[in-house]
């Protein structure tokens, strides 16, 4: 069964009298354990699509199934719970809470989870997650005391803390230099291969997209084509 399945997704913004169609009938599906890059020029509608995939936004029309569950029928609370348990977000600008330690940043999503871990367990799980991402000695650092790459690692740890099935990363290397970008991308590949996490990476850069096993090209709101890459493995 497909992990997620899009059928003829349309998204139109209404600015006053003008209709701005951004997504014009997008259809594709992604299986469990894939590492997919969504590639397209700036303004092609990648982020819009990403918001729909991440259950932050409704499509204007079309069907979106996540794990066989139709999303458009869910209430906003239902979508929030889904985001909490199934989806992890990584942003271009990291979006860490300022003046808050790395550990607390990573723990934050746990306080909205349904299972509701006790404080000690929550802390322990966050510590383990930070260790996994190589930040064992940066737990108590605040974002301003961390480098860009370290900040993005904290953000990835936060995205993974609730053990989601999908990791959505919107231009995760957009604010990083090429060396650090390479590190982060390798981290994604590791997570995909070793933990089996499904990763959807949004980028405008072909050099970054080629780290994924599969590249979906989007242009002006329409899927243009698909490339199976062989560069997905960890070297």
């Amino acid at each position: 069964m497909q992990l997620l399945e899009l059928k003829d997704i349309w998204k139109t913004y209404y600015l006053g009298d003008i209709d701005v169609p951004v997504l014009k009938g997008v259809s594709f599906s992604i299986e469990q354990g894939e590492f997919v890059a969504l590639m397209g020029t700036s303004g092609s509608g990648k982020s819009t699509l990403m918001n729909i995939l991440g259950c932050l936004d409704h499509p204007t029309s079309g069907e979106y199934r996540l794990d066989g569950q139709e999303i458009s029928g869910l209430s906003s609370d239902g979508r929030a719970m889904l985001r909490n348990s199934r989806i992890g977000f990584v942003f271009q600008n990291f979006n860490l809470l300022p003046r808050t330690s790395a550990l607390d940043n990573v723990m934050m999503p746990l306080s909205y989870s349904v299972e509701h871990l006790p404080e000690r367990q929550a802390k322990q799980r966050s510590v383990e997650m930070l260790n996994l991402l190589g930040l064992a000695d940066r737990m108590d650092h605040e974002p301003s005391q961390l480098s860009g790459g370290q900040q993005q690692r904290v953000a990835i740890a936060r995205a993974l803390i609730n053990k989601p099935s999908i990791l959505l990363a919107d231009e995760p290397t957009g604010n990083l230099d090429s060396h650090t970008s390479e590190d982060i991308l390798r981290l994604f590949q590791q997570l995909n291969q070793q933990q089996g996490i499904t990763i959807i990476l949004v980028t405008h850069d072909a050099n970054i997209a080629k780290h994924a096993k599969r590249i979906i090209r989007i242009s002006d709101g329409i899927i243009e084509g698909e490339i199976k890459s062989d560069a997905g493995g960890v070297k």
Binding site: A80, M81, R83, N95, L97, P109, N162
Partner: peptide
């Protein structure tokens, strides 16, 4: 506002 958006994206409901 950004913090609120972030919290919502990781699963905070309106009532949270």
């Amino acid at each position: 506002t950004r913090e609120i958006g972030l919290r919502m994206s990781v699963g905070a409901r309106a009532r949270d």
